[in-house]
Design a protein around this nucleic acid. Sequence first.
DNA 1: AATGAATGAGGATTCATTCAT
DNA 2: GATGAATGAATCCTCATTCAT
Lengths: 213, 213, 213, 213
Amino acid sequence: MPLPKIHDRRERRIARRRADILEAAMKVFAEKGIRQATTKEIAEAADIAEGTIYNYFANKEELVAEMLMYIGDVESRILDYVEGLKVDLRTFFHDYMLKRYRALEGNHRLIAVVFSEVLNTPELRDIYMQRTFMPGTKIMEDHLRTRIERGELPPMDVPTITRLLIGTILGLHLLIATGDEVTTELWADPQKFTDVLTDFLFNGLTPRSDAAE
Amino acid sequence: MPLPKIHDRRERRIARRRADILEAAMKVFAEKGIRQATTKEIAEAADIAEGTIYNYFANKEELVAEMLMYIGDVESRILDYVEGLKVDLRTFFHDYMLKRYRALEGNHRLIAVVFSEVLNTPELRDIYMQRTFMPGTKIMEDHLRTRIERGELPPMDVPTITRLLIGTILGLHLLIATGDEVTTELWADPQKFTDVLTDFLFNGLTPRSDAAE
Amino acid sequence: MPLPKIHDRRERRIARRRADILEAAMKVFAEKGIRQATTKEIAEAADIAEGTIYNYFANKEELVAEMLMYIGDVESRILDYVEGLKVDLRTFFHDYMLKRYRALEGNHRLIAVVFSEVLNTPELRDIYMQRTFMPGTKIMEDHLRTRIERGELPPMDVPTITRLLIGTILGLHLLIATGDEVTTELWADPQKFTDVLTDFLFNGLTPRSDAAE
Amino acid sequence: MPLPKIHDRRERRIARRRADILEAAMKVFAEKGIRQATTKEIAEAADIAEGTIYNYFANKEELVAEMLMYIGDVESRILDYVEGLKVDLRTFFHDYMLKRYRALEGNHRLIAVVFSEVLNTPELRDIYMQRTFMPGTKIMEDHLRTRIERGELPPMDVPTITRLLIGTILGLHLLIATGDEVTTELWADPQKFTDVLTDFLFNGLTPRSDAAE
DNA sequence: AATGAATGAGGATTCATTCAT
DNA sequence: GATGAATGAATCCTCATTCAT
């Protein structure tokens, strides 16, 4: 079956090229910001002609959308429902933070820039909600419900608590994105960061005796 | 001394005009987004000529910066160090949330739009950090330290905990800005919202028996 | 009443500027063709900045549409129903041809170029039909009907005959536009041209004895 | 002589391919207009690769020129000098109109599109003049001259009259192309159309008693 | 001080054409 | 000969900013 093979090869080549261009674009976006990045700059970064971008992406907006979906997929894969239930909740949180940390390491500027665009463009906001926020939220909610059923957590308003958890993590990302030094330093020490954050999420401002530092 | 008086009047008139233009700009920014808002639209909203804007602001960016400073001042005034220490910590948080809630009510779109710009533009980020973030952080840190000194709180890593508190609130704002329904509904009920949030910040995910729902 | 006056002056200035730009555009269109003419060239011909065009016209298409309407108005004014009925039909035709001749003298390339665009763009075609074709047709039809009522012409299928008359004139324009020498030379002698054409329209291929050359 | 044969076959294959591509191009041109038609679309319509077009045509313009020549050949063949002289003039005209009608039936959009391009592009205009206009003109002129010699027609300015005849037909085509309903309906009834047109060309506006409707 | 017309740099996008495979 | 990905020149339009009145 030679035809399918050729077809595959062609598709693979296209996918590879798209990925190359996307990667170059992400680099430029992170450096300059999304709207400040010109297609010319992206083309130069990808070492192709400006017009070639349009053989792989309908327009600049699709490039941004694709980037958002890519980031969403990366983020989605961090939360693992099945594996997460095998360990206790603290460990699950801790592991999640750590994986998240590793996935996003060094990409804070890109995250800031992307979030800037998401806040500004309804279409991108929808993509973010569907590809990143909602999947993550669902896993977290299911996880909490299972824990409650198991009796490991007291009954609670699961959707709301989920927002508080996700909101906190999101907020810390933004503090780093805005350049807060304390948060940045905290983040720089993954062990300490995950410890402190897990503790906060579990016990809040007033740690119990067994969790006090 | 007639001259100073005239000067005062002049300055007041200038200040008033700046405020008028700023108000019009904020309205347009909230509606369209900052970069989508044109100076033409702002001039129309302020009922002046386009060129007049430039008699009061150096350029569009200064307009945005000024808006950011204005918002920062409003936000700063919410946290009252002196008054806050007169009540217990829960009440202080609760009051703060409520005041914050009232100050920002109906301005989520503007907040989203401004934050979008802050995330994108280093210069604006600096303004945000200096006028909004740092003052708020300082008050919160001082507050916590005083509470610790008083023995009302256990010893803790104050700067870090402060980031967690502020990060959480910031994260919730962004969840609303991105259109999450659960968070939006939560926010719509100020009493419940402040209760739940205060509880979370105090006790985290695992409320003690006395705080259980 | 000074305000109306100022308003008038402003309006007149705008109208004059529009006219200036339109004139420059028509010149460039005639030289290069409509789609080959760039906004840059039009701006240069009008001795203004490229952006200034857009203070007076929404886009290039509006410029073309406006030109078409202008031409339509010029053409419409050629056919004078009231005056036309005062003279006999031959004289009416003769005068019409002569006025048309004078109005269009030296503008054949522009006419060709405009007609090219009309044939290509539905929106422009509609403008042409409404502003030029239909008014002219109506006057001609009314004219013929009045003549028939007066007994100066035999009963006939007025709409069809009108199309044949207008079609013939239109066709000759196009022959000139395509560069046919015979037609061009004929046109160059207005007296002969109008004579021959009037004769043809009246008597067709087989002139009666009294009309024979 | 095997080589010539192969050569012939080769040439025939090339000719066939050119014709295929041309046919596809004409289809796309008629649908979209010439300049709106992309080489990509033409390639798709011809079910070949975009680059293949350039193995058979130097560029898009040659494709248009070739189409124009093809149309010219079709139109030329409508006017048959030898056959035409066997019948009387009215019948000759009538037959010509009818043949023309059948040849062009359903191709008004293509005619409009082609004429639009001819009016716009001097190079195409020349092709049109040489391949379509001049041959047709010549046959018509010769025809009229022969009739005059035979005494069937009075002496007349043959070139001018020929332009009037051709111009009228051309004009009617354009009225249809611009969407005039009366002309379109007239055209839709070939018998009536040819009758009316022949009558007009013969007798003009003032039909003699024997031709009156 | 207010005006608003003029400015023109800047940028996304299209598409005929080329050429390595 | 066929392919179709790569090319990049070309162009319309936007809009913050200026400045003569």
